[in-house]
Design a protein around this nucleic acid. Structure first.
Length: 642
RNA sequence: CGGGGUGUAGCUUAGCCUGGUAGAGCGCCUGGUUUGGGACCAGGAGGUCGUAGGUUCGAAUCCUAUCGCCCCGACCA
């Protein structure tokens, strides 16, 4: 390239047949050095860029910045290890650079995912990250989705002009793939189809934390299936669920699938893949005996017998004064002494602008996610200012007894948890401050719009299947399969024509795997006090040749030969050729967690041996030098087969 | 968005309460002694104490604002 900025004035000047340079691009003092002027060891090398494996790497020429101490902002083991082992570095809250070592594992996870998706019949494509906002505005969930979306306007002078296009950064891609399929697929002959991509997603997490666990920018495999029939969609769904199980076991993650919240979509269903972990921010309810497992947002229990008969009224409703009593606990105490499970809890929510009531037992907690089944697009707890004009009293004295609500016409509904039928006759607020009602009978006195399951399940309650006590554990969600139905295809008009010339909406499913989150989940699930224990399948390198005396030519030569033997056997090999003391090398080796370590040193050479040690095991095998290459190759072959 | 905390060298941090012009460990550089589980000795570089105001003779320290980060809650894959 010419060494001045003259051509910056020429529109679309071509540089050496390369890309055109826009007229406003100014080249200042730009000079490219000829490759021959580079020092010999800096000559560019061309290797298969997309390949995870490749020629073995030498630590001294690679880049693995390990740390002795954990960063101050890391709370959990996997986050600390990610940073200490040099896998990631933080740019800002919820934003991480994948360092060379971390990128290798990330690629292996992606590749395993890709292979399982392909094997299950899914087809890879790649959609833009930058979405014209109209696609979202036309979609069925713009109001809710915009809360987590980033806007991406042209930076320019810092303001978006009225005629500038407006973009958002994609948090997921239903709104993009559905219009695509609508225009490209119109016949039943082209169905079913299942598309996926592995791509970065952007979500404005209210509170990013735990490193890659909850990030603003993260890598996700997202897939979307399109079927002609509901039955076909179920088949697609089950095929994906099966592929997910294969994927997680392949990358060494013990994930369990649980029933998940389906939100506003009646008739659809959903499973999440969960990794049990102390630090998980999801909660799983399960029963080992029956195999029942569900996200707590969705979980039900069998505390209400199916054959429960409604209680007969215990007497006339009676108002009694309760000055200052505004909590369940206060009414439980003397002198009232009403047990919490004999109280009605009346909550006021606002759904799409209209207040509605939720009635629970006093001893139960609302599981807010379950309100999603009521069909509101957005809902939230009502404020005290909103409550009083409708109910006639402040929170603490509320109830749903017929005739006591000040403005019942304002309510969008009164929704009751099934468990209130266990109360039969109980106590509730009178909708007059300082007053409650007793002898309130569920059937006689309450005008329930609809019964449903709204309460949060507690540990030890009977499993809905077997009746055994339910257990509860924290978990990390790493995958989610969702049968969507026609929510998006209806909205975007993604229809096909069947063999009777009839038009139908396609039946969709969507499927996500948190690739970067899985990376961290593996570490969270597989580490010890010294560092990471990588599963063979995703280890950034599988064999580490620990060369203790790189200055000894025969040691260095042997290390290289063993490394090559391991590589020929199918392993990715790292040779630690740094001039560090042995202690440092061993500590680093344990920290970065390469599964198989071969130690080559002057001391061993004198004995005529090298050492072979698995990261996950304590014992060290001494291999005669003559056997070293074949023994290592055999170990690699064994591990690769497992 | 509410509550709490915190910001000092690349990393981990002391000093702050009680104002007097910044100290350690790790890492890094130089030299030497070492060399099979994070060596030792000597020397060295590196900090406008997040930023902006204010109080004061004097501010890392006190006050105000602001930004970042962390924790709890709400919310969310």
């Amino acid at each position: 390239m010419a060494g001045n900025g003259e051509h910056s004035n020429e529109r679309h000047d071509r540089q050496d047949g390369g890309v055109p340079i826009p007229a406003d691009f100014r080249v200042v003092n730009c000079r490219l050095e000829a490759p021959s002027s580079l020092p010999g060891n800096a000559l560019p090398r061309f290797v298969a860029a997309a390949s995870v494996s490749g020629s073995m790497k030498f630590w001294s020429q690679f880049f693995i910045p390990t740390l002795k101490e954990s960063p101050a902002d890391a709370e959990i083991a996997s986050h600390k290890l990610l940073v200490r082992a040099g896998l990631v570095r933080k740019l800002g809250g919820g934003l991480y650079t994948y360092m060379p070592l971390g990128l290798r594992t990330l690629r292996k996870i992606s590749q395993a995912c890709r292979e399982e998706m392909d094997a299950a019949g899914a087809i890879e494509l790649q959609m833009p990250h930058l979405h014209p906002v109209e696609f979202w505005e036309q979609g069925p969930r713009w109001a809710a989705a915009r809360e987590i979306m980033y806007r991406a306007d042209h930076a320019g002078d810092g303001k978006r002009g009225p005629r500038d296009p407006e973009y958002v950064l994609g948090p997921t891609h239903e709104e993009i793939i559905t219009p695509l399929v609508k225009t490209e697929i119109t016949s039943y002959r082209d169905l079913p189809k299942n598309f996926y991509q592995i791509a970065t997603k952007f979500r404005n997490e209210i509170r990013p934390r735990y490193g890659l666990m909850r990030a603003r920018e993260f890598i996700m495999k997202d897939g979307y299936s399109f079927d002609a029939t509901d039955e076909g969609a179920t088949q697609s769904y089950l095929r994906m669920k099966d592929a997910y199980s294969k994927f997680f076991s392949r990358v060494g993650v013990k994930a369990i699938s649980v029933e998940a919240d389906t939100g506003v979509m009646g008739g659809s269903f959903s499973h999440e893949f969960m990794v049990p972990a102390e630090v998980g921010d999801d909660v799983v309810v399960y029963c080992e005996e029956s195999g029942y497992a569900a996200n707590r947002e969705k979980a039900t229990s069998g505390i209400v017998p199916k054959d429960l008969a409604d209680a007969a009224p215990a007497g006339a409703v009676e108002e009694f004064p309760t000055p200052g009593v505004v909590t369940i606990a206060a009414l439980e105490a003397a002198p009232y002494s009403v047990p919490a499970d004999k109280q009605f809890k009346t909550l006021v929510y606002v759904g799409d602008g209209n207040p509605f009531l939720v009635i629970l037992r006093g001893c139960d907690e609302l599981e807010e996610a379950k309100l999603g089944s009521l069909g509101f697009t957005l809902f939230r707890p009502a404020t005290p200012e909103e409550i009083e004009p409708v109910m006639g009293a402040k929170p603490g004295s509320l109830g749903a007894v017929k005739g006591t609500i000040k403005d019942p016409a304002a309510l969008a509904g009164i929704f009751a948890d099934h468990a209130i039928r266990l109360i039969g006759n109980g106590t509730t607020g009178a909708n007059r401050d300082g007053m409650h009602l007793r002898n309130v009978n569920v059937t006689r006195d309450l005008a329930i719009t609809k019964f449903g399951d709204f309460r949060r399940v507690r540990v030890g309650e009977p499993d809905p299947k077997s009746g055994n006590p339910l257990k509860i554990a924290r978990a990390i969600e790493v995958g989610h399969v969702f049968k969507l139905g026609t929510k998006y295809s209806d909205k975007f008009g993604a229809v096909y024509t069947d063999d009777q010339k009839q038009s139908h909406p396609m039946v969709m499913g969507c499927y996500g795997i948190g690739i970067s989150r899985t990376l961290q989940a593996i570490i969270e699930q597989s580490h010890d006090n010294d560092g990471i224990l990588w599963p063979w399948s995703v280890a950034p390198f599988q064999v580490l040749v620990c060369l203790l005396d790189p200055q000894l030519p025969e040691a260095a030569e042997l290390a290289k030969k063993i490394g090559l033997a391991a590589e020929r056997a199918g392993a990715d090999v790292l040779i630690d050729d740094r001039t560090e003391r042995p202690g440092v090398k061993f500590k680093d080796a344990d920290l970065i967690g390469i599964p198989l370590r071969i130690t080559v040193g002057g001391k061993g050479l004198k004995e005529g041996i090298v050492e072979m040690k698995w990261r996950a095991q304590k014992d060290v095998a001494k291999l005669p030098i003559a056997d070293a290459e074949s023994k290592v190759a055999a170990a690699v072959a064994d591990a690769s087969r497992a």
